[in-house]
Amino acid sequence: MFEQLIQSIFQADFLFIIIRITAPILFAALAAVISEKAGVANIGLEGMMMITALFGFLFAYWTQSWIIGVLGAMFVGILLGLMMGFFSFKLKTDIILSGIAVNMLGAGGTIFLLNMFTGLRGNTGALVSPNILIPTIDIPLIDKIPILGEILSGHAILTYLAFIFVFLMRIFLYRTPLGLKIRAVGENPNAASSVGVSVIKMKYIAIAMSGALAGLGGAFMSMYYSQGWNQGMVAGRGFIALAAQAMGRGEPVGAMFSSLLFGLAQAMKTKVSGLRGMASYNYLIEMIPYVVTIVGLVFYAMSIKRKARKHQLRPIK
C-alpha cells in the first residue's frame, strides 16, 4: 500500500495535479497578501470565491464566453471588496465581521441568487457546456520535453496566470508608486496620511484588488476545476489562503510556496483516496490540508515568537 503511494507520487501527473490544485489557493492567497499589505485582514475570501464563482459561471453562460465570465467574476469580486470596504472603513464595522458577513452571503446567499437568476437549486450542472469553460493551453516547445512538458504544459490559462501574478504582485508592491503607498499604509498609516496619501483610498484599492484576485480564484473553481458551480465547491480554500498568506510572511513568493504546500496536501488526498484499501479513510484524508494548515500556522507562530524575545513583553497593540 505504501509502495503504491510512493509510486503514484513520483509521477509527472502528480506534479501536474499539484499545480492545478494550487492555482485557486494561490489566487486567494495573493488576494490575502495584497489586502494584508494594506493592513486589511480579509477573512471574507471564502465567501468572495463562492459568489464570484457563481457569477463568473453565470456571466459565461449568459454570454457563452469564458472570457466575459472571468472578467465578470473579477468585477463582482471588486464590488464585494468595495462593499466590505464601505462597511469597515466608512461605517467602522470590524473588518473581521464584514468578512464573516460576506462569507454568509457566500454560503446561503449564492443559493438564493442562483435560484433567483436561473431557477436552479444547489448547482449549475444543467448549464455546463465546454465552450464556457476556461480552455487549457499547450505551451509550444515545453510540451515536447518529456516529463517537464507533462507537468507544465496543458494547464488552464488561469493556472499560468496565477503563477505569473506572483511575480507581477512582487513588482507591483516593490517597484510601483501605488505599491509603495499601499505598503506604507499597511505599515504606518499615520506616516502615509501625513504626506497626503489617503489611507482609506489605498485600503479600498487593496481590498478591491483582493476581490479581483478572489474573483479569478472563484472563476477558476467553477469554470475549470469543478466544471460548474456547486454549493460545497470552495470548501475552505478561502480560509486556507489566509493561512498561506500568514505562513508566507505576507510576501507573494512566500505565499506561493505555502500555497504549493497546501496543493501538495490536497493532491495527496486525491491520490491516496484512489488507492486500494484506503477507501475507508477518505474522510480522514480529506482532513489533511486543514491539519497541515494548523501545523503550518503553529510553526509560523513559533518562529515569530522566537524573534520577539525580550523586548516585547509589553503587549503589542
Binding site: I43, I96, Y290, V291, I294, A301, K305
Partner: peptide, 18 residues
C-alpha cells in the same frame, strides 16, 4: 504561541467535520 485563533478555529471546523 500567538497563532491566530480565528484561522485555527476555522480550520478546526473542517477537521472536526471530517
Amino acid at each position: 504561541l500567538g497563532a491566530s485563533e480565528m484561522v485555527t478555529s476555522l480550520m478546526l471546523n473542517f477537521v472536526l467535520l471530517y
